[in-house]
Each structure stands twice: as C-alpha cells, then as structure tokens.
Design a protein around this nucleic acid. Sequence first.
DNA 1: GCCAACATTGACATTATGTCAAGTCAGAAC
DNA 2: GTTCTGACTTGACATAATGTCAATGTTGGC
Lengths: 197, 197
Amino acid sequence: MSSQNTDTRTRILEATIETLEKAGGRGVRMGDIAKATGISRQAVYLHFKSRTELLVSAIRYTGDQLDVDRKLAPSRAATSGVERLDLYIEFWGNYIPEIYGMARALMADQHTDEAAAAAWQDRMIAMRDGCRAAIDALHADGNLAAGWTRPKAIDALWTLLLVPNWENLTQQCGWSTRQYIRHMQAMAKRIFVESRE
Amino acid sequence: MSSQNTDTRTRILEATIETLEKAGGRGVRMGDIAKATGISRQAVYLHFKSRTELLVSAIRYTGDQLDVDRKLAPSRAATSGVERLDLYIEFWGNYIPEIYGMARALMADQHTDEAAAAAWQDRMIAMRDGCRAAIDALHADGNLAAGWTRPKAIDALWTLLLVPNWENLTQQCGWSTRQYIRHMQAMAKRIFVESRE
DNA sequence: GCCAACATTGACATTATGTCAAGTCAGAAC
DNA sequence: GTTCTGACTTGACATAATGTCAATGTTGGC
C-alpha cells in the first residue's frame, strides 16, 4: 500500500462526500465522483469495487473525520438517564446534517441494492446502541415511564430518531436543527420519562 | 372509451396492486405487471404513460377500493380531541398495511423520479390533513399540551405517523399492527395531550 | 534501463424504462 | 361483405447508468 494508493483513495472519499453534500445526495453518478476527484471513472473501480462499497466507505470515513466518539463522550458521561437522553438527542441532531447527503444516497439505493440496505442498516444498528444506553440509564434510575418494557422503549426511541423523521421535519416542515433538537428532546422526555409529582 | 378499454385499465391496476403487495414493493418491473395482467409490456403504456403514473393511479385506486372515506368516518365523528386522535391513529395503523407494497414502490422511486416524489408527497399531504384535524380538535378542547404551537404539533404528529416509522417498527422491530396502534396512540397522547391532575 | 503499481482509453455487457413502426384481429357501420 | 377503427402484439431501438475487460500509457525506485 504505497502512499499514492492511500492518497487517491482518500481523495476519492473526500470528493464523494463533497459531491454528495453539494447535490443533497441526489443524482450523483460514479462519473461525477471521478471527475470531482480528477481521475477516470474506471480508476474509481480500482479502489472501490462498487458504488455501494464507495458510499459505505465514505460514510465510515465521515464518521472517523467527524470524530464521532469524542462527540458522544458527553452523553456517555451523563449522570442521569434524563441527561443522557437529552445529550444523545443533541449529539444526533447535530450529527445528521453532516451526513445527510450520504445518508440520502444510501437510503435511495436501499430499495434496489441489497448491499446498500445492509450497509445503512449497519449504521442504524450502531445508532440504536445509543438509544439502548439512554433507555437503560432511564430504567436504572427507575425513571422509565409506565407502560414501557425496555425493548419496546428502545424500538420506539430508535424509530423516533430515524433520518426520515429528521428529513421530514427539516426539509418539508422547515424546522431548524435547533428546533429539531429541542422538540425531539421534549417529545422523548414526555414519552419515556416518568413524570414525578 | 369502450368498456374493453376501461376493463383492461382496471385489470392492469389490480394486477399492479397484487404484484406489488406480493413482492413487498420490491423489484417489480413493467414487464412483470404486464405479464400478471396477461398483456404485452407495451400495452401497459397504452393506458399509463409511465411507471410513475401507473403507481400513482394504483394507489388512488386502492384508496377508492378500500373506501377510505367510510373508514375515516369514526374519527371525524369523535366528540373530543383525544378521541379523535386515538381513532385517527387507529385508522391509519390499519390502513398502512393495505397500501404498503405500493407505498414502498413509490418511496423507492422518490429519490430518482421527480414525479414519483410529487405523487407520494401529495398522498402524505392528504394524510397531514387528518393530523391537523386531530390537533385542532385537541386545541379546541384546551387540551393541547404546553410547549406546542398548533403548526409545530401538526408537523410533529404528521412526522410520527410517516410510513418509514411504521416500516421500522413492524418490519425491523417485529411489532404487530396492534402493537403499533396501541403504542402510537399512547405516545401521541403523552406528547400532545395536556395531563390533568 | 527495467519493473511494478497505478491510471487511462475505449469498447462492451447488462438492465430497466420508454418510444416507434408495422402488423394482427374482432366487431361495428355502411 | 367489405371497410374502417380501436386495442393489442411484435420486435427493434434509444437512453442512461453500473460494472467489466483488455490494451496501453506513465512514473518512481532499484
């Protein structure tokens, strides 16, 4: 693995991310990415065996670049379930916009491409972990609202935070990132946190 | 417009619905629909100028067949906002499974086909009306929870009921239709209804 | 000066939608 | 009973994108 090799691969990934973000994840072809990288379309296939593999690599690369682990630290350090829930939603609400272009491209391929579906699935399962942690923390505090079993609450929170919901609220309804975060936090607390009188 | 004409058109629509439901909305091509109808692929284009137009006609046809208006009557007749919300969610939870195949096919095309996006959008806007009515009824009762403006509450309820959420809960998480309805009703009430002590 | 790795070029296979032109076939009109 | 018309068929083609392949440059290290 010469430095050349790595370098071109990285350049492709960065061109992919930039191109997808610029286009809102719509109608970006392999040729567009090649052109943006400054190489031939075929050369892209020397580094990534398919469009799907490129998209998946790109979304992983973004995760690394954005230092997701560091950003998740606050929510992990939370001292109560409610705080953890709040901080996790805040993290997530700020994270989605940064990956939205790629998310959209992957989600579009999901319906036709098995591999894309699996890849996106994989990312969402990772996100589910954060939901599980938040619900578990709530439960440990004895604060999980009545009517919820832990698994059902995890399912529900996970679903609530899915990208299509963010998409609908921000793109269709015109909510800002800040509004998304504040209202999601409020909704999640009303749904999952036992009110104490 | 001979009866032949109408008849074939109807047969295409029914074959489309059946084929899509059978395939879960995945990988159904114009040729498959033609074969299911018992005519040539080209003949389909004599009745519908594009795949998108066919899908839209099919989803409309389903709506008519299923007599949506009648099914919506209970929620329209509700005497309180809370009841209206409950009944609307019940209607919707029972309705989605019946249109899921087509919904999925339309949603898949959404990312690449402007017309499909507009068509699905149009169906979802219709659904939004039910959300608006429920929130308005709650508000009229003085029961809309603090922290919500009416428009924001409508946006939020609308988003909560979107098909991808149903899809995730039933297909990924394995919830039954009944579970979906009960939990959605519970969540919606916790989110939007003022708790009275 | 030569090798190996990386890229380029251009042709091709594939798969779907959608268009087009020519022909078939049954029934209605005169 | 011929002719006309509308619905359908057949088969060829245009288009657009991904992905494959083979032959050919180009460049840095030894």
